[in-house]
């Protein structure tokens, strides 16, 4: 596919983006539509643990929670995926056997990406060989800010190749890109280089996902779809902790890309504490009462 000239910048008006987000946030989501949104959000979660202290025991607990988020309410959807470091992939894979929950793994020297390309590719291949269904890679932000767009493009293409059958999510780390125009450019670059998903953040840099950044990325996905008919997924990650925020994100997706993107195949939340807030709100909608967090398992 012929890709655009990445030295050209697509103008983005930050004031306009912020206003659009504010208007979308003024949507009032009540009753049935709220319950539906809460369950939908739950089904889109990449339940995540990415700590230096992660151990098989911790990952096993996380997987169990993913399979059975809240036993008090049957018929709840499970989360979409569990997201772990490559070393933990086999543990998660075993624990999630027989479910349709995917195992996602961060790779490519996450979170900085500051390793030689061959090591990042090995990292990716290892995660895939351990059974990862999805790979979350990071782009070389240093090279991007330095204007080496072809290098970044080629790296993403190489990782895509290393992924084989596994789905590739490309983390732009928008907190380090600083402008919405850079976010747009990195999105275009990633999609043209073969990303199946574009993702805002590692969760290790502040700010992580924001709504204006997400809107700009969704608009990039929309333009890519207009041009190529290919649907690319979107994953905001980091900083989304409350059900209210999650619903606001769903509104943004619904009114930017429409129904086709409102499922876990095309939209994910990268989050850890969001799950319990969603559960708490679902219980509130069903019973009319808020329960203490003590009634929800931490992992």
């Amino acid at each position: 596919m012929k890709h655009p000239d990445f030295n050209q910048t697509i103008p983005i008006d930050e004031v306009g983006v912020t206003e659009r987000v504010a208007r979308l946030n003024s949507r009032s989501i009540k009753k049935d539509s709220k319950v539906q949104a809460l369950k939908l959000a739950l089904s889109m979660i990449d339940h995540t643990t990415l700590e230096g202290s992660d151990s098989p025991g911790k990952v096993i607990q996380l997987c169990k929670k993913a399979r059975q988020p809240h036993p008090a309410i049957p018929d709840l959807p499970t989360v979409a995926a569990v997201c772990v470091y490559p070393r933990m992939v086999s543990v998660a894979k075993k624990e999630l056997k027989g479910t349709d929950i995917n195992v996602a793994s961060v790779a490519t020297a996450f979170p900085s990406g500051q390793a030689p390309l061959f090591m990042r590719l090995e990292d990716t291949k290892f995660a895939v060989s351990e059974g990862a269904d999805e790979i979350d890679m990071v782009i070389s932000r240093g090279a991007f800010l330095n204007g080496e767009f072809s290098l970044v493009f080629d790296e993403i293409a190489a990782v895509k190749e290393a992924c084989g059958e596994a789905h590739l999510k490309v983390i732009l780390e928008t907190g380090e890109l600083h402008t919405l125009e850079n976010v747009r450019k990195a999105s275009d670059l990633a999609m043209h280089a073969g990303a199946d998903f574009i993702k805002t953040s590692t969760g290790k840099v502040s700010p992580a996902a924001t709504q204006p950044v997400t809107l700009v990325m969704l608009e990039a996905i929309r333009d890519f779809y207009y041009k190529t008919d290919k649907m690319i997924g979107m994953k905001p990650a980091g900083g989304i902790r409350t059900a209210k925020q999650a619903i606001q994100y769903l509104v943004i997706v619904k009114e930017t890309l429409g129904a086709a993107w409102l499922n876990k195949k095309y939209f994910r939340f990268g989050a850890s504490s969001l799950t319990n807030d969603l559960l708490m709100q679902i219980v509130k909608q069903e019973t009319g009462h808020y329960q203490s967090l003590d009634y929800f398992s931490n992992d």
Partner: peptide
């Protein structure tokens, strides 16, 4: 112009699985 849409008419589907309840 570097860009021409492939489909001149709307093809995004905004009527969906998830509708807003009256507020």
């Amino acid at each position: 112009a570097t860009y021409k849409p492939t489909s001149p008419n709307s093809k995004l589907d905004f009527e969906s699985v998830w509708e807003y309840a009256p507020a």
